[in-house]
Structures are given as structure tokens and as C-alpha cells.
Design a protein around this nucleic acid. Structure first.
Length: 264
DNA sequence: GCTGCATGATGAA
DNA sequence: TCATCCTGCAGCA
């Protein structure tokens, strides 16, 4: 599940649920036990998201850096029982959080955080002035296919395999076109659509890129499972806009689908 | 029960 | 480009 929209949503909801509370912290699986003991009994101040990374700020303890990777997931709730393989768990008086399967779960010192910030590109969900220009300047220099560049977290932090396919469909661009061949208007549209789609995903908690109006609905949240996207995972089936068969092949080591007619 | 696959990223070659 | 790490679950026997 974790592209940038999910990560930012976790940060927002976990801050709301757990910040300002003294937490009991432990590592059911044991692989984060020494670190957990440093955090046990501390107050969580806030959770920040940076692209697909999460940073947990504590009163009087180091920052915790989490990256969910492909498999990581959180379970939170009043009645959550952390499974024995959960890497990290904590509990307030009201609720429990359990983290399993993360690619990264570690303590961060300020140098490491500075390195991370240097390493990743602009985050469409945490925009800074000039980000759109920085993005455009990077694309101008990249000969690789735009579909590969959008997955590169040093270019753009937060887009994953679902959004890259859907964004390129929405802007009508062939994933295999070299990034540097795109015109300024095309690059600007990619940026704007990326921001809008990730924001919508952050709010709804799901990736719905299709126009609900096409289905006679008024809100993205009403779009049923299996109807939410234009191209991702739909290779071999008819394009939802023009009926042409959706194409699919690997790009940057991962499958991408696109419509040869809508994205000519 | 087993296999394969998944919205990620890295390091070696 | 490939192998590797991390976990859960659908689909199949």
C-alpha cells in the first residue's frame, strides 16, 4: 500500500492519535528491543513524512526513521494485539500501534536526517517554493524514459508504481519517452497532476485516479474496487477511455501499463 | 501446505 | 539487470 500519500496519511493520523502522550514502547520481535527501551515511557511529539519516509520525534530521545518498503504495514487501534513478529509496538492509554515488515526501522541522528533530505527530491505533498522548477530542471537533463524517472526518489519523492502509471495516463504521455524530450507544458502538467493526485490519495486513503463522473458518481470515495484506475494492472484489457487494448511491459524493473492511443 | 506475487530500495556486476 | 531483504495473502493443490 505504501506510496507517498499513504505515508503522509500515516503521519497525520498517527500524530493525531499518539502525539503528546506518554507511550509504552517495545519490540515484540526483539530486533528493535534496545532502541525501544530508549523510547519506552517517552512522549511522542509528532510524526513527519518526507516522501516515503516517516520520522518520529520524541521528547528526550532520538528520532525514529521508518521506511515501509513493499511489505511494511501499521496496525493501529484500540484493540490491536501486536503480532509476535511486529518490529515495533507502542501503546497509549487509548490505542495501540504495531509496525511489521518495514525495510527500515532505526534511530536517526541529525546527520543521517540531513543526508536523507539531500538524497531525496521534492515531495509533492510537502511542497517548497521552487519545487516545480527544480523538478523541471531535473527532467531536462534526463535521457531515461519518463516512466523510469518518476520512480526515482531523488527526482520526485513519493510517487510509486501505481501513481507513475496513472499520472502518465492522465497527462497523455507515453512512459517510454525520454524525460528530456518533454516540453515545458508537459512537465508542468505532470507536476500539477502529481500534486493533485497525491493530495486526493492522502485525503481518501486510496488511489482513485478515475473520474467518478464517468461512472455516474460524484466522489472518488464512491468508486468501487476494481474501477478506480485507468491503466495500472490492466494490461490486456480495454482502455477505459478509448477501448484500445492496454499495453504492459517492464520499465525500470517493474511492470507498467499504458494506452498506446491515449498516450501516443 | 505450497507458490507466486505485491503500491520499495539497495548493492553487486 | 539481477539477487536480495522485508511480510501477507490469494490462488491453487
Amino acid at each position: 500500500m505504501p506510496e507517498g500519500h499513504t505515508i503522509h496519511r500515516h503521519a497525520r493520523l498517527q500524530t493525531r492519535r499518539f502525539s503528546g502522550e506518554v507511550l509504552r514502547v517495545w519490540s515484540p520481535q526483539g530486533r528493535f528491543a534496545a532502541e525501544a527501551s530508549l523510547l519506552d515511557g517517552r512522549v511522542l511529539e509528532r510524526v513527519d513524512a518526507l516522501g516515503k519516509h516517516l520520522l518520529y520525534r520524541w521528547h528526550g530521545a532520538p528520532t525514529v526513521h521508518v521506511h515501509l518498503g513493499l511489505f511494511g504495514r501499521f496496525r493501529t487501534g484500540r484493540d490491536v494485539q501486536p503480532s509476535p513478529n511486529a518490529r515495533l509496538a507502542w501503546a497509549s492509554k487509548e490505542a495501540v500501534l504495531a509496525l511489521s515488515g518495514p525495510t527500515v526501522c532505526e534511530l536517526f541522528d541529525p546527520d543521517e536526517e540531513a543526508d536523507l533530505r539531500k538524497r531525496i527530491g521534492p515531495d509533492p505533498l510537502a511542497p517548497n517554493a521552487g519545487d516545480a522548477d527544480r523538478f523541471a530542471e531535473t527532467l531536462e537533463r534526463r535521457p531515461s524514459p519518463i516512466g523510469a524517472v518518476l520512480l526515482d526518489q531523488s527526482v520526485l519523492a513519493g510517487v510509486g508504481n501505481v501513481y507513475r502509471a496513472e499520472i502518465l495516463f492522465l497527462v497523455g504521455i507515453d512512459p517510454f519517452r525520454p524525460a528530456k524530450s518533454l516540453g515545458p507544458g508537459e512537465v508542468e502538467r505532470i507536476w500539477q497532476v502529481t500534486v493533485a493526485e497525491l493530495e486526493a490519495g492522502e485525503r481518501s486513503g486510496r488511489i482513485v485516479t478515475r473520474d467518478p463522473g464517468d461512472l455516474g458518481l460524484s466522489h472518488r470515495r464512491e468508486v468501487p474496487r476494481g474501477e478506480r484506475r485507468y491503466v495500472y494492472g490492466r494490461g490486456g484489457t480495454p482502455c477505459r477511455r478509448c477501448g484500445e487494448t492496454i499495453l504492459s511491459r517492464p520499465l525500470a524493473g517493474r511492470p507498467i501499463s499504458w494506452c498506446g492511443r491515449c498516450q501516443g
